[in-house]
């Protein structure tokens, strides 16, 4: 990448893209983790084993 005066904008664009995509991935996985935890706590309380899905 030649030292184009505007290459700063390219870098910024790719950083934003990385942030947004990483944000989406992390949010989805974190949501899954908390849901699984709540589900296990609830399933334990209602006395019913429950397959909360993989991972």
């Amino acid at each position: 990448m030649t030292a184009d005066p505007h290459s700063g904008f390219v870098v910024a664009a790719y950083l934003v893209a990385l942030a947004v995509i990483a944000g989406m991935i992390v949010a989805t996985l974190a949501d899954y983790a908390s849901l699984k935890k709540r589900l296990e706590r609830l399933a334990a309380r209602t006395g019913r084993g429950f397959d909360a899905g993989p991972k």
């Binding site: 030649t2 184009d4 505007h6 290459s7 904008f9 390219v10 664009a13 790719y14 893209a17």
Partner: peptide, 11 residues
Amino acid sequence: QGETVRIMYLH
């Protein structure tokens, strides 16, 4: 546009 066209690949 020079290098900034690479943003097209995201936009």
